[in-house]
Design a protein around this nucleic acid. Sequence first.
DNA 1: CCGTATCCATTCCGATACTG
DNA 2: CAGTATCGGAATGGATACGG
Lengths: 146, 146
Amino acid sequence: MRRKSLEKDACPVARSLEAVGDAWSVLIVREAFAGKRRFGEFERSLRVAKNILAVRLRKLVARGVLEQVPASDGSVHQEYMLTEKGRGLYLVLMAIRQWGEGCGGKTESVLIDRRDRKPVKPLAFHAHDGRELGPGGMELVPASDA
Amino acid sequence: MRRKSLEKDACPVARSLEAVGDAWSVLIVREAFAGKRRFGEFERSLRVAKNILAVRLRKLVARGVLEQVPASDGSVHQEYMLTEKGRGLYLVLMAIRQWGEGCGGKTESVLIDRRDRKPVKPLAFHAHDGRELGPGGMELVPASDA
DNA sequence: CCGTATCCATTCCGATACTG
DNA sequence: CAGTATCGGAATGGATACGG
């Protein structure tokens, strides 16, 4: 998408897409959640060219999704860590994953609770009183109407 | 992303991205949830060129996200409706929206329950016993280990 | 109104070579 | 190892013109 930058779009969905709306960025964030921190780790696991990896990382840092911190080993290099904001993407990633799993025939992965090793409840919307809600049961209204 | 099609990637996140991993597709789906059905409606609301809209719609239909149905008015034309699978993207869209709202300073929109007009609970993960879980409390394991 | 076809500009991607 | 610089090719996007 070239024309509209989306950056100033009123819709929060559009704005989010401006930050992480390309496939590489999403995959980088996925790897970050998987524990990857170093340039080379991302490079190898994603098999992405150095130059475009560099650009994507810069953008993610600029957007506040990742931050650079001094390497934990003694090296002169930096590591890329998820910020608080970046960690907020976990829900997005898992929503995407859940959708992908849901319609793919066979299940590839299961999200489990670290504590009891049991599967986590599927992501779903709940009303204030706890009722589960489907897409038709909700409505998006401007904040001003609230 | 040219090289790896992602289509055959083991990770469900990557596969999902193959289906709806570009910004236009996401926005089209957003509009579909907003009630848009016709080619011209998408064209105007997104201000996207006809040709690329056509390509995107075709792809979304091919991926089973949208389906074409005869127009509800008497016209000869078709309308694009979300399939069951497509409606599953609601959760994804709202997760993206929630993330965008969460870090933007001011809130643009609120998701409310149609029934009681009260805000819906924020999306979050819950363990089997109901405890709320953060990213660190969960782990993604291959289905074969389950 | 709903697309398809064409053209052109731009952008993106991957490979490679290079630096500290 | 962690990038930067450059380059050619491929894909994409936007505008426009055209057809059913």
